[in-house]
């Protein structure tokens, strides 16, 4: 029972607001350091790929943003599910805080995929399975944000958009499967394979550092946005008065 107190505490707006604020520097500084280190490692330290040459260095932006886009959607749907099941207002705040971050990194993943595809495939866009399912994921994010902004009342917006996120996460595996199935039938093997079977450590380490940096970056950004969402949902509470004095 005692192990659950932290969970109940998180349901208290002032506690969550302060915790997110306290965590922020501990997430933001490592995020910046790791992301810069990953970029440095990727651009300078990693050797050029023997097949793709220097163009391969785009992976240090492309793969972490692809990971972040999927992870953010999972976080969003999980938070929305918690919010719907236990009627936890603040879980919806996390879902709403996550959506724009996830959408922006999905867009980054698409743009860098296109930039990578140009020298590798010779065109800016190829209907590759990964890129196509990322595009659909981007549409799912847009749907969440559009539905959320279509309601004037925040609580209803939270619950309607949250339900959409949950329905979306049930569909994400189906969409992935169908897109891969469609892709293998329509074209041969793809050139762009992010997960080569054996990557030497000099290539792998910067990639892992970038993954860690992007993930922490998401967490830091989510903290800032979460605080904003908490404030937006707590217009009249008395703890806000202390905020003004402190």
């Amino acid at each position: 029972m005692a192990t659950w107190t932290w969970f109940h505490k998180l349901a208290s707006p002032p506690y969550l607001y302060r915790t997110a604020g306290r965590l922020l520097p501990w997430l933001a500084i490592p995020a910046i350091v790791l992301t810069l280190a990953g970029a440095y490692g990727g651009l300078v330290r990693a050797p050029a790929d023997y097949q793709q040459g220097e163009a391969f260095r785009i992976i240090y932006v492309h793969a972490p943003s692809a990971w972040l886009s999927l992870m953010a959607y999972t976080v969003m749907a999980a938070a929305a599910a918690v919010g719907l099941i236990w009627r936890m207002k603040l879980a919806h705040a996390l879902a709403a805080a996550t959506a724009p971050i996830g959408a922006s990194f999905t867009l980054l993943c698409l743009a860098t995929g296109s930039l990578w595809g140009r020298p590798m495939w010779g065109t800016w866009w190829v209907w590759d399975a990964r890129l196509t399912s990322q595009l659909i994921l981007f549409f799912l994010y847009l749907g969440y944000m559009a539905l959320h902004s279509a309601y004037d009342d925040t609580q209803r917006a939270d619950r309607a958009a949250g339900l959409l996120a949950v329905v979306g996460i049930v569909n994400v595996p189906i969409i992935h499967f169908s897109v891969y199935w469609w892709n293998t039938l329509h074209q041969g093997s793809t050139v762009l394979r992010a997960d080569g079977p054996a990557m030497p450590p000099s290539m792998l380490v910067p990639l892992l550092v970038s993954f860690a940096g992007y993930t922490l970056g998401y967490a830091a950004l989510a903290c800032v946005r979460l605080r904003a969402e908490v404030l937006g949902r707590e217009r009249n509470a008395s703890w806000l008065q202390e905020l003004g004095r402190g």
Binding site: A146, L147, Y151, G168, S178
Partner: peptide
């Protein structure tokens, strides 16, 4: 149902889910 500009929004929500 609870929104005013229903139809365009509806397409935006349903189309990605209908792609499979």
């Amino acid at each position: 149902l609870g929104t005013r500009r229903g139809s365009v929004l509806l397409s935006l929500l349903v189309l990605p889910l209908a792609m499979p």
